[in-house]
């Protein structure tokens, strides 16, 4: 199938470009790439739900945090080694997604957004409430032993990049296949016209629950990876801005495209990075971007490209 080949080729090209950037850019920027890739995994997870299924969640930080704390707390308090703790982080994200999804999917539209926002707020407050273990806003540093995988210490710059690249590549390639699969196409159908999809014999509620669970699992993976690679766990990752960021990244990069999330994270990362060098009020950039994007470019960067290149996945 040429379409699938083209998709895979595009994604492999993106991955190759990341490697070239890492090798050629100065250390500071190359170091940022690891962070961008991990956040892009989070954005890909969000995009699966928002961009492909058409469900706008305002509470994804709870899934990111579930992964982060699922990994971090078992490493910190129970002394688990990296891999089982990491797996538990992904599982925690998926499980929370399943539960929240089962409840929130009873609502739709605006109510769905508010319900997800409120669940995320409860999750954030819960982390603060159990401050004895989570250390609240201050957070904690992940013990060094829990950051060693197969004898490799992932706190080194190159090791960290390679680990982030492997995870990101896997997620990008799998998501590329997923959105072209029967499941992925049905999710798009739900986004386009849920009632019609239902009346074609698809169990839309079950499919949306699957979408939330997979999306939450990917977000949890990103959260666990963030803690694993950067060694820090804190409640700010569960707060409202971390629910807004993925929405912003996906809108900027292009909702419903596989490469949009990475593009969005990349641009927003450097925009905010630059702005925070100038002013304390760097989130002003995020606010302006949200308003301008919804007004003038709701399709995002990759969405604009897709007008020319229609096969863009």
């Amino acid at each position: 199938m040429s379409e699938r080949l083209r998709t895979d080729a595009l994604h492999l090209g993106v991955i190759a470009l990341l490697v070239v950037l890492f090798l050629t850019l100065p250390t500071y920027y190359a170091g940022n790439l690891s962070r961008i890739m991990v956040l892009a995994i989070y954005a890909i997870g969000y995009n699966l739900l928002f961009g492909y299924t058409g469900l706008l969640s305002l509470g994804h930080a709870m899934f990111f945090a579930a992964g982060m704390y699922g990994y971090g707390l078992t490493a910190q308090l129970a002394g688990w080694p990296a891999l089982p703790a990491f797996a538990l982080g992904i599982l925690a994200g998926a499980a929370l997604g399943l539960v929240v999804g089962a409840l929130a999917l009873r609502t739709a539209g605006v109510a769905f957004m508010i319900v997800t926002l409120m669940f995320a707020q409860s999750a954030y407050l819960t982390i603060l409430y159990f401050g004895t273990w989570t250390r609240g806003d201050e957070g904690f540093v992940v013990p060094g032993v829990a950051r060693v995988v197969l004898g490799i210490d992932l706190s080194g710059e190159t090791e960290r990049f390679v680990a982030a690249l492997i995870l990101f590549s896997l997620v990008l390639l799998v998501s590329g296949r997923l959105v072209r699969s029967r499941l992925g196409r049905t999710l798009v159908a739900i986004r386009e016209n849920e009632e019609r999809t239902r009346m074609l014999g698809y169990d839309a509620t079950r499919l949306k629950l699957i979408a939330i669970t997979v999306s939450a699992a990917l977000s949890g993976l990103a959260g666990a990876a963030y803690a694993l690679l950067f060694g820090y766990v804190g409640a700010s990752f569960a707060a409202v801005p971390y629910s807004i960021f993925p929405l912003l990244w996906v809108l900027l990069g292009g909702a419903g495209t596989t490469v949009g999330p990475l593009i969005g994270v990349f641009f927003m990362f450097y925009l905010i990075d630059t702005a925070s060098g100038i002013t304390l009020a760097y989130m002003l950039i995020a606010g302006l971007a949200l308003v301008l994007l919804t007004l003038f470019a709701p399709q995002g960067i990759a969405g604009l490209v897709r007008r020319r290149v229609r096969w863009l996945p």
Partner: peptide, 30 residues
């Protein structure tokens, strides 16, 4: 300037008002 141009579409107005939230808050901070 904003909501009217979005035709009061529920999803897009929510996103836009999140943007307005940050603009108001951060401008005040500055």
């Amino acid at each position: 300037l904003v909501l009217k141009r979005l035709n009061y579409d529920p999803d897009r107005t929510i996103v836009a008002t999140i943007g307005l939230l940050y603009i108001a808050q951060q401008t005040t901070l500055m």
